[in-house]
Design a binder for these strands. Structure first.
Length: 755
DNA sequence: TTTACAACTGTTTTT
DNA sequence: CAGTTGTAAA
């Protein structure tokens, strides 16, 4: 497989990255700096290394791109001497787009990309030094989990005790800390076993020539660390390293960046500790303080003027985030007016919440706001269902972000597995995925034999299958098919290769025969389109590059991405975006903040930052909604309003009542007892089982109750029904406890409860 | 070996 | 509720 042009141009190791004569560009440097406020200007022109503490909506991306343009235009660096790192592909693209608008330069060869994308780039170039085959494959999260399950099975590990996801999380956590198995300390037998599994997993990946996300980072880190010449080359080249969303860097990524640093290079980091919401993925906010220390930076440059939101919205955001203790500290301000109050709506259940959102959305649209100017945010993707249903029923166009992405869909993964086998038939993971899909009579028994043969002879499944001859008819057919396709696509352009492989795989025929195969067929067609687009955009026909792209950029191929539609997404997915109108839904204890987060170290603070991110997405109008009950796992579940609602000064909030007759929607005081048994009617539509069942619960939410062991607490929610109904009580010192209602010995202060 | 269906279980956020 | 795993029958 020929290396792509991308790789060829970076292969030119003699490319000087240091100063060069100023570009002959029409953009005067004064023009570049015009319109920046003093802090932004200071950041753009900062000599040497700097840390920029950039609040939400403070022009962070503008500063970053303007700095690159300014450095180039003033001759301080050549385009090839810049390394700019982001976390999302979207952000990287955005940066390149803005950059080419500022300067007439060719951005294609520039090193602007995500950490993982750049790590991949390094490893492709230096695969030999890194100890990887030229055609190494990238495992996405699903692939990695499948590989781990396979490993556990092969080693006959009790996967009840060692849950695959646990093992996966353990391995990734170690890698994100830069730790190989030999460096991890394990004191108890369980940890020791985990460690063994980590080591075995590594061996398996190495054998199969595959690399997971964390491995991309770790392997490229080790490459730079161990090869002084290579390191020196990139240090010489990248005179300016710029990092976006610095608060999201992991320890390993931090050290990766530091390897590229030389005394006369400049590191420019932009971040906002208040928007650090990826700790669960290894992000380490502490990197910001460490950065200042390691680089001898006294104070960060603070960008506190917000150009996005009205003052009321900022006040709310500032008030919420002020409850966090661990902060570098900054308050946002705006020159814009106060704006409208924040609207708050309490719904009886998630269905009513969704109906409220739809009605308001329709009003906004009638007032002239395009659908696309409206975002509906939620904490967990599962919440999108009720909202989608209501929007769909009302005929409002909407687009859901997140969830299952294009390259993660089963049919696409299948097609990609065929392509991976075309690129490299030794890929066991890909082999197992499609050896019997579509079904061709290769069952568990055949695979057992094959795996045994492969193991004893130390070869891949593919080799074993070739060698074992045609003991199984289906297996022989599969081998013949793959060999045939490999021969057929040799020398074909990328898109043809994809089209031919998909066709020959039999996937199309298979899905044509399925009831719900229509959408899958469309997706498979779309895969060829994606290949065409990829080939044009990157000027390459390299299948490996396309497969890497598929793993590193799972989404972004949805149809109608640019249509005017209401945007539905998780708060995480909304980071970096802004909308004239924003709904934050599901503001309930247990959901937002999420109950899992409450038991994690610093979990509540991270949830609060998430709330901060959510609020600061809004430019003019902000809605907050919560529901008294919500369907969860097919059961209604009750919760108190989120504490974040109370952290916003009441003066900024205007409660909204449901508009339909007979409804009830004023903001309730969460500690006011007594409304659980009030019979209430809901808006016109079917209210679901809610009102009837509510009367079954003996204590109102918020009721103070006494427990013989834990003392006084507050009723925080219910789950389930009938004799298995559980009650959740929050105790001041003990936290949340669940009890079976029928057995819980609870008393209400001042009397015994009904029930 | 494949298919169909029952039982079980987890369930946040994502490059 | 939905996705996965286990079991029984074809």
């Amino acid at each position: 497989m020929a290396a792509s042009p991308i790789f060829l141009c970076v292969r030119n190791l003699s490319m000087p990255g240091h100063a060069h004569p100023p570009l002959d560009v029409p953009a005067e440097t004064d023009t570049l700096l015009a319109g920046l406020n003093p802090e932004q200007r200071a950041a753009v022109t900062a000599p040497g290394s700097a840390l920029v503490l950039a609040g939400a909506g403070s022009g962070k991306t503008r500063v970053l791109t303007t700095r690159i343009a300014w450095l180039i235009a003033t001759g301080q660096v050549s385009p090839m001497g810049v390394l700019a790192v982001t976390f999302t592909n979207k952000a990287a693209r955005e940066m390149l787009t803005r950059l080419s608008a500022l300067l007439p330069i060719r951005t294609r060869g520039m090193w602007v990309g995500t950490f993982h994308g750049l790590a991949n780039r390094l490893l492709r170039i230096h695969h030999r030094e890194a100890g990887l085959p030229e055609l190494f494959q990238i495992l996405d999260v699903q692939d990695q989990l499948a590989a781990i399950k396979r490993l556990l099975k092969r080693l006959a590990v009790d996967s009840e005790r060692f849950e695959p996801r646990r093992v996966q999380a353990f391995i990734n956590a170690q890698k994100e800390q830069g730790l190989r198995p030999a460096l991890v300390e394990a004191w108890d037998p369980y940890s020791r076993r985990l460690l063994e599994l980590y080591a075995e997993y590594e061996a398996q990946c190495q054998r199969e020539g595959v690399v997971d996300f964390a491995e991309l980072m770790l392997r490229s880190y080790e490459l730079l660390e161990r090869n002084a010449l290579t390191r020196a080359h990139y240090q010489e080249r990248f005179r300016h390293v710029l990092v976006d969303e610095f608060q999201d860097t992991s320890l390993l990524q931090y050290r990766w960046l530091m390897l590229l640093r030389r005394a006369d290079n400049a590191l420019f980091a932009v971040g906002d500790d208040d928007q650090s919401i990826y700790a669960f993925r290894g992000a380490n906010v502490g990197n910001m303080a460490r950065f200042m220390q390691d680089l001898g930076i006294g104070e960060p440059i603070r960008l506190t003027q917000n150009y996005r939101s009205h003052a009321i919205i900022l006040d709310a955001a500032n008030a919420v985030i002020a409850h966090n203790v661990n902060r570098l500290g900054k308050d946002l301000w705006t020159a814009a007016g106060r704006g409208e109050p924040i609207r708050h709506f309490e719904a009886l259940d998630d269905a009513e919440e969704a109906r409220f959102v739809v009605e308001e959305v329709q009003d906004l649209h009638r007032e002239g706001l395009p659908w696309g100017g409206i975002a509906v945010l939620y904490r967990a993707n599962a919440q999108s269902r009720a909202l989608e249903h209501a929007l769909f029923t009302a005929g409002v166009p909407y687009r859901v972000w997140g969830g299952l992405r294009f390259f993660e869909r089963a049919e696409i993964k299948h097609a990609l597995a065929y392509l991976r086998l075309v690129a490299n038939p030794e890929d066991d993971g890909a082999f197992l995925r499609v050896v019997n899909f579509p079904a061709r009579g290769v069952g568990a028994r055949t695979l057992e034999h094959l795996e045994a043969a492969a193991r004893t002879q130390g070869m891949s499944l593919w080799q074993a299958a070739c060698q074992g001859g045609a003991r199984n008819k289906g297996l022989a057919a599969f081998v013949a098919l793959i060999e045939d396709v490999r021969a057929q696509v040799r020398g074909l352009p990328l898109a043809e290769t994809v089209a031919v492989t998909v066709e020959r795989s039999g996937l199309l025929t298979h899905y044509r025969g399925e009831r719900d195969g229509e959408e899958r067929l469309e997706n498979l067609q779309e895969l060829t389109n994606a290949a065409v687009a990829f080939a044009i955009e990157n000027e390459t026909q390299d299948l490996m590059a396309f497969l890497a792209h598929a793993a590193l950029e799972a989404g972004e191929y949805e149809a109608a991405a640019h249509a005017d539609a209401v945007q539905l997404m998780s708060v995480h997915a909304a980071k970096g975006l802004e909308f004239p109108a924003v709904f934050i839904t599901g503001l309930e204890e247990g959901l937002f903040p999420h109950e899992n987060a409450l038991v994690e170290q610093d979990g509540l603070e991270e949830e609060r930052r998430l709330m901060y991110v959510a609020i600061t997405r809004a430019r003019q109008r902000l809605y907050l909604t919560h529901a008294q009950s919500r369907m969860l796992h097919g059961q209604p579940r009750w919760g108190l309003p989120s504490r974040f609602l109370e952290e916003i000064p009441t003066g900024l909030i205007k409660p909204i009542r449901a508009r339909s007759s007979g409804s009830w929607g004023a903001k309730a005081s969460p500690l006011a007892p007594g409304h659980a048994s009030d019979a209430r009617t809901t808006t016109g539509g079917a209210p679901g089982p809610t009102p009837a069942r509510r009367t079954d619960y003996p204590y109102a939410l918020g009721t103070r109750v006494l427990h013989p062991r834990y003392g006084e607490g507050v009723v925080a929610g219910y789950q389930g029904q009938g004799p298995e109904t559980e009650i959740r009580v929050t105790f001041p010192h003990v936290g949340d406890k669940w009890f079976i209602l029928a057995y819980a010995r609870l008393t209400v202060r001042g009397g015994v409860a009904r029930g």
